[in-house]
Design a protein around this nucleic acid. Structure first.
Length: 597
DNA sequence: GGGCCGAGCCAC
DNA sequence: AAACGTGGCTCGGCCC
């Protein structure tokens, strides 16, 4: 293994020199690509360096001096394969800052996540360089690029910066070779192809971003603040007599008796009121008879909304686009689901006036589409249960049908309570739920819940079979797969571990849930690719802007919104049918000025 | 003053 | 009191 200092590279600072390297790039089977910019925001980042490595040559291009148009075609083409670490960033910067649409992507970070899914979340270049090549990387130089006083901004690079840049792209080729073998050995090629195709779609979705009506948002927050302040005042007044002395601040104002956000102070207050509580969790407070408990729950409701969804989200509006550009983490969950942050638009409250603040631009509409009961349909598919399948094939209400089967009564006689019980079981099973927690939810004794489950499993024998088998298989083989081929590994606890059985139970539940949740993620990812493909092919003024697990939101010009809605529905069904052969897939689409279910 | 962690709670 | 899968955010509290 060559030492890092040995890496030879050409530093390209003229247009002529750049043009000369193109034929070599075109002939190469693989080209690794890396960029250095001065910001993580593609809209604000100045493109400083572009590094390209082939198996033969390493190039570091000074983007402050040359125009990248000579390498545009080779970067956009289907060949050679482009190897990157966290390609989403480079795709975005290259698109916004250089007008280059990166094609044929292999992402070492995404690949590593697939290979080690369930075992590790260490996917940094430093980690994988060490793992595959035994190379120790330093990452301190990276920070020098984002320094606002960085001379690189004026095209003055230190040798250290150039060496660092060349090294980062160079090592990707060797990592790729070894990593690719791992993907093959684990049967992950199809999933990797899917994930690699999703990268640019996600990058485009982030670049487009979501528009939020700030005025409406603030008005909603203020409403909540008034309600919170009122209930806080009421609680403080109730509690003040408990304090030995009235605390007074610098200006002589009476201070709050306690901090309602501190569980310790709350427990103390309850104690002084003669109520001993084990904790201040929602469940505990709901059972507590003292009026303070009820008020506290009300306070918490408002406080959660204000702190989590208040002004902080508005601060993330991009100054250049005026929109929110959250970070979608493509392999956020071990099941294959997306995660999202800065801000997390996947946890905006469903009801309560926040979602309707997400709006379409003037002249546009939002198209919100979600899969109907996709996880239950996946359970029907994998279990091949005839009763489950028949319910979806004939488009019946599954929960009502379940209730009718379980209680042996005609469909017409299924009341709300029985449907709710059936629904709770249908959903609970996918999470590996047991009789105890089911009992709590539907308000029966544990024995009654156990009996309900018994009846349920007599009706849906194949569902039980599948759940039992997949749970056992997860423990035996230490991994499970989705219908798309994605895999998640499990680490078995030591046999003498004090919580051995508990931990095994956890793996069984994850083993049951992962194929279902993960297949849903597979389907949504195929759908994103298909939809993006159709929008591009038909050159529509329509853009993906958001996804929440089984939901996809697009923004489309008003006059084509209905057409776009139809395309989205078709492509989502097409994606579902790719993995679900026996069970039909259903999609619900809405066209609106707001984000709504 | 930054990093980390658990509690609590939002989403699907 | 609860044993229900997947995440992220905010806070208090603790550590260095």
């Amino acid at each position: 293994m060559a030492t890092l200092e040995d890496i030879k590279y050409e530093f390209i600072t003229t247009q002529e020199a750049l043009e000369k390297i193109v034929p070599g790039l075109e002939k190469a089977p693989t080209v690794s690509v890396d960029t250095e910019g001065n910001s993580l925001d593609p809209y604000q980042s100045k493109l400083l360096l572009l590094q390209l490595s082939t198996p033969e040559e390493n190039y570091v291009i000074d983007c402050t001096k040359v125009n990248l148009s000579p390498v545009k075609a080779v970067l956009e083409a289907e060949k050679p394969l482009k190897i990157l670490q966290n390609a989403k960033y480079d795709y975005s910067v290259l698109k916004v800052q250089a007008g280059i649409i990166l094609g044929a992507i292999y992402d070492t970070m995404i690949a590593e996540r697939l290979i080690t899914c369930g075992l590790s979340r260490e996917i940094s270049l430093r980690t994988i360089a060490d793992k595959y090549l035994g190379v120790k990387l330093e990452k301190v130089t990276r920070e020098s690029f984002t320094d606002p006083k960085n001379p690189a901004l004026r095209g003055k690079f230190t040798k250290e910066q150039l060496d660092y840049a060349a090294r980062d792209s160079h090592i990707l080729l060797d990592i790729f070779k070894k990593q690719f073998k791992q993907l093959q050995e684990q049967g992950l090629i199809e999933t990797a192809k899917l994930e690699f195709k999703v990268i640019s779609v996600v990058a485009e979705m982030e670049l487009k971003g979501s528009l939020i009506d700030t005025k409406k948002w603030r008005a909603h927050i203020e409403e909540l603040e008034e309600k919170r302040n009122a209930i806080n005042q009421e609680i403080q007044n109730d509690l003040r007599p408990l304090a030995a002395f009235t605390q007074v601040d610098l200006f002589g104002n009476e201070m709050d008796a306690i901090n309602l956000d501190s569980p310790l102070q709350l427990l103390d207050a309850f104690k002084k009121l003669g109520v001993e509580l084990p904790n201040t969790s929602e469940a505990t407070l709901q059972k507590c008879e003292h009026p303070l408990a009820k008020k506290l729950l009300e306070y918490r409701g408002y406080e959660k909304m204000i702190t989590s969804f208040g002004e902080t989200i508005l601060q993330k509006i991009n100054p250049i686009t005026g929109r929110l550009h959250p970070d979608f983490i493509q392999l956020g969950a071990d099941t294959g689901r997306f995660a999202c942050n800065n801000p997390n638009l996947q946890q905006i409250p469903a009801e309560s006036g926040f979602r309707s603040c997400f709006v379409a631009s003037p002249g546009y509409k939002l198209v919100t589409a979600d899969y109907s009961q996709i996880e239950l349909r996946i359970m029907a598919e994998v279990s091949e249960d005839p009763v489950f399948l028949e319910a979806f094939l004939s488009d019946q209400d599954l929960h009502t049908l379940t209730a009718s089967q379980m209680f042996r009564i005609p469909i017409e006689q299924v009341d709300k309570a029985k449907r709710f019980q059936a629904k709770s079981i249908n959903f609970g099973l996918m999470y590996g739920r047991g009789p105890a927690s089911l009992a709590v939810q539907i308000g029966v004794t544990v024995d009654e819940a156990r009996e309900l489950l018994d009846v349920y499993f007599k009706t849906y024998r194949k569902v039980k079979q599948w759940l039992d088998n997949i749970g056992r298989s997860a423990v035996k083989n230490c991994y499970v797969r989705t219908l798309g081929g994605r895999r998640r590994s499990f680490i078995l606890p030591d046999r003498d571990h004090p919580d051995y059985l508990k931990l095994i139970g956890g793996i069984e539940r994850q083993g049951k849930n992962t194929p279902i949740q993960g297949t849903s993620a597979d389907i949504t990812k195929y759908a994103l690719i298909f939809i993006y493909g159709e929008f591009s092919k038909k050159n529509l003024d329509a853009h993906l802007i958001h996804t929440v697990h089984d939901e996809i939101v697009s923004e489309a010009r008003e006059d084509i919104a209905e057409e776009v809605a139809k395309i989205v529905e078709e492509q989502m069904i097409r994606a579902g049918a790719l993995l679900l052969k026996k069970c039909p897939v259903k999609v619900e689409v809405k066209v609106s000025n707001y984000w709504e279910k």
